[in-house]
């Protein structure tokens, strides 16, 4: 089955990111395809490069980067949600004078069109944090 994921809540304060990550692990192990993970609303904080949790805690941002690196899962951060909250794409940061390396490895920034494409092409669209 082709599954797309949407994450609406920030990591650590909410369980949504953890549940989504475990869901994705289980789906991949059972032979399903994860078409895309789309980060919306406060979910964009999952892509914050400079997140530094204590060393004895899980590193949620790093975990997403690893998922992209090892499994090739497409991680897309909504551009308008991200800009509103100060998470800028490099080119935007350069242009408006913001921080240019805000986005962690493996994430890319794009518009809601990529969410809709995922919803339309997937058999299931599962939202976490709503």
């Amino acid at each position: 089955m082709k599954i797309s994921i949407q994450i609406n809540a920030s990591p650590y304060q909410h369980q949504a990111s953890d549940t989504a990550w475990h869901f994705i692990q289980a789906a991949l192990q059972n032979g399903h395809e994860i078409y895309r993970v789309f980060f919306y609303h406060d979910g964009i904080y999952n892509a914050l490069r400079d997140s530094r949790p204590p060393s004895d805690e899980r590193n949620i941002v790093q975990r997403w980067s690893t998922l992209n690196e090892q499994m090739g899962v497409d991680l897309v951060v909504c551009v308008s949600s991200a800009q509103r909250r100060g998470l800028l794409e490099q080119s935007v940061g350069e242009k408006v004078g913001g921080y240019e390396r805000a986005l962690a490895d493996g994430f890319r920034i794009a518009g809601l069109g990529l969410l809709m494409e995922a919803v339309i092409d997937s058999d299931r669209h599962v939202t976490f944090g709503a």
């Binding site: 609406n8 919306y40 609303h41 308008s80 509103r84 809601l112 069109g113 969410l115 809709m116 919803v119």
Partner: peptide, 19 residues
């Protein structure tokens, strides 16, 4: 909070995609 506004953006984008 901002979520309702962002949520309606999703609905309008879906409609723009012919759904």
């Amino acid at each position: 909070d901002i979520r309702a506004q962002e949520f309606l953006d999703m609905a309008m984008m879906a409609a723009a995609f012919g759904q």
